[in-house]
């Protein structure tokens, strides 16, 4: 059951930002993640500021330069089904279609998706963990089968729960953010907070800032994107391991590419190792095997998530092979 809170649904971004100045005020977009957090009493909330009525945050269109502009309140389903997305950013459409369940895709928004809280069961559950201001990360010695193999930094071992975020990073997207001091743009790659920097925040957003739009630059000619996700069951489940790819091909050769892992780290995890291994190469089986091996070379598994090493290798091999076959 939810705690008590004030509720307001302003119609302008400015008003929403003003309301967010109040003590323990939080943003409500689709509400799917926020309400789950409220039920678990994960953080104090005194005021819920719903931005769902702010008109300018809805919808998808194409900018003059060919960039895709996605309003932060665009539902995940719309992202998955929108013809523009499907045609030009198939990896993004794919990742959106793999999120949670149909109902949650109908309700959850792309802005909310990239701002969602981790699914670590210690964080969500009745445990006063590091991320909630406590003194312990229970995952270190506990039930860490769903936790990270990269980037834990010795502090907090969550994985970033989003499927969409890794694709946006792979596609070099930017978040447009509005706050009391105006509007700024943050590359998605720099949007997520690593735990060793600040263990209690998942993004670089300032307290009163709101994501208003996602900008995806037009892909260079020859670019193909894809997303592949492995989960413990086939619906309503987060990634055990996933890979988002945006590769630019010249014939069969990879000119350059961005490869971002989900289910791997506290933030969408860009695998420089894979990118370097495939750059300038044709994706033959040797290159693919080398890339998959390189991907996990630096992994630091915990007690119960060692399976993620062969799993990431397998997922990367499979997905690179698929890309290669369609090249």
């Amino acid at each position: 059951m939810f705690p008590d809170f004030d509720y307001v649904r302003p119609q302008s971004l400015q008003a929403a930002i003003t309301h967010l100045a109040d003590e323990a005020a939080v943003v409500h977009a689709g509400g799917t993640d926020l309400l789950g957090c409220l039920r678990e009493h994960i953080f104090a909330v005194k005021k819920v500021v719903s931005i769902s009525a702010v008109k300018e945050l809805h919808g998808i269109d194409e900018a003059a330069d060919g960039a895709l502009r996605i309003g932060a309140l665009t539902t995940i389903r719309t992202v998955a089904e929108h013809p523009l997305v499907r045609r030009r950013f198939s990896g993004l459409a794919q990742s959106a279609s793999e999120v949670a369940s149909p109902q949650l895709r109908n309700q959850g928004t792309i802005g909310g998706n990239i701002c969602q809280k981790p699914r670590c069961w210690y964080y969500r559950g009745d445990f006063n963990c590091l991320r909630k201001g406590g003194g312990t990360c229970f995952a270190v010695d506990g039930e860490n089968q769903f936790h990270c193999i990269f980037g834990g930094g010795g502090t907090c071992f969550i994985v970033h729960p989003s499927d969409i975020a890794p694709c946006l990073v792979a596609l070099n997207a930017t978040a447009r953010v509005a706050g009391p001091s105006g509007v700024r743009e943050v590359p998605l790659e720099k949007f997520f907070m690593r735990p060793e920097v600040d263990v209690q925040h998942e993004t670089v957003l300032e307290p009163r800032e709101i994501v208003t739009q996602i900008l995806v630059p037009p892909p260079a000619a020859g670019t193909r994107s894809a997303y592949r996700k492995v989960r413990a069951r086939r619906s309503w489940d987060f990634a055990l391991a996933g890979v988002a790819l945006a590769l630019r091909f010249d014939g069969r050769r990879v000119v350059e590419g961005r490869v971002v892992l989900s289910g791997a780290a506290p933030v969408p995890w860009r695998s420089a190792e894979v990118e370097q291994t495939i750059r300038g190469k044709e994706l033959d089986s040797d290159v693919i095997a080398a890339a998959a091996k390189a991907a996990v070379a630096e992994a630091e598994p915990l007690g119960k998530n060692g399976y993620k090493i062969p799993l990431f290798q397998g997922v990367i091999e499979e997905e690179l092979a698929r890309m290669s076959a369609s090249a």
């Binding site: 509400g31 109908n106 309700q107």
Partner: peptide, 12 residues
């Protein structure tokens, strides 16, 4: 469209 009524505030 189908949505979960338990994750939707009445006010919303």
């Amino acid at each position: 469209v189908a949505r979960y009524a338990c994750l939707t505030l009445a006010a919303e």
